[in-house]
Design a protein around this nucleic acid. Structure first.
Lengths: 191, 191
DNA sequence: CGCTAGGGTTAGGGTTCA
DNA sequence: TTGAACCCTAACCCTAGC
């Protein structure tokens, strides 16, 4: 058969994201021919880009499928243990951040009054926006391509320029960047 | 719950084998739709076929040759790797179609004049080796010192001789050389 | 033909269960 | 503990419509 199956690397994903920012989603052939990305994506086809973008855009499990109380429940067994946070894949640049991330974004007054004994599992489903923010930051940094790392302001400007941002976005971003850098997920953010 | 685990019968296994002989491994849906087998395999899905074939293909206690590194590579620790080339993961999505285009690059001698790709500033993650591959190519060319530049086969041989190379290394190298020459980073010299 | 969108299929890691 | 059976889904294929 043909190719054994090539997993996308973080580098390639970053290039694709940057390419979409620059040329727009749907301009796969254009992105591929852009010298800025061809060096990284030279092994991929325009269709590969399209497919990858499609499943990158699929948000983590859309809730709603209540028809299965399946596997997710299963992984509760050991919960008393002070198990260290499971390490994520290291090859990712700004990876999906494990739980301890909430500190800055969780202001939500989730009104779940009569919860007798809330199962404080590590498992939940909240951090959608957090993952998203990681992606945006990555996108900003890769697009800005400033030697030595981009500064906070530039990153904020970039994101606000490309997307709609909520009123307190700067505060959130600031906290996020602080977390990412202090935890070693981002090398450094100048200034 | 739903599926109590359906053991495969000898008849089903025979049908699967015959199906693979007739249509080839990987053509699971095709096998399933073939009237010759659908009467027997009607309880199975294409995925079932694939899984069963995988199980059947597992050789008894094969301490697989060079494939043992798979597990080791799964989760890369956070640190700079001192080892030479380790893992490449790439390939075009070209199927078994005779890409005459790519073959034309074969045997074309090349000489250097290169420039490395700029690394990204996001975190010292184990990055995949586009840069390293450039270095290896350069090393090969300079070491070989062939007047007029080295051809692709010689470069591949040199690298494979000096380092461990993944199974589809030649394809990767081929694509890389094609990119480097077409983008002007390597100058092709007529033999 | 080349390209993109979108549905369909496969490959391979992971999980469950006897 | 092991391996067969089954699940999840990224990666890849096929094809209609332009």
């Amino acid at each position: 058969m043909g190719a054994p199956k090539q997993k996308w690397t973080a580098e390639e994903e970053a290039a694709l994201k940057a390419g979409v920012v620059k040329h727009g989603a749907g301009k796969w052939r254009t992105i591929l021919k852009d010298p800025e990305f061809s060096g990284i994506l030279y092994l991929r086809s325009n269709v590969d880009l399209k497919d990858k973008w499609r499943n990158m855009s699929v948000m983590p499990n859309a809730l709603g499928s209540r028809e299965k109380s399946r596997v997710t429940l299963k992984r509760v067994p050991v919960q008393v243990q002070p198990t260290p946070i499971k390490q994520e894949e290291v090859t990712t640049s700004v990876s999906d951040v494990p739980q301890s991330d909430e500190e800055m974004l969780d202001d939500k007054p989730v009104a779940s009054s009569s919860a007798p004994n809330p199962p404080m599992q590590i498992e939940a489903a909240p951090k959608r926006s957090i993952v998203r923010l990681d992606d945006l930051i990555l996108e900003a940094i890769t697009s800005l391509k400033e030697p030595g790392g981009s500064n906070k302001t530039a990153i904020a400007s970039y994101i606000e320029d490309q997307y709609w941002a909520p009123p307190d976005f700067k505060r959130v971003l600031s906290a996020k960047l602080k977390f990412l850098t202090s935890s070693g997920k981002l090398i450094r953010v100048s200034k």
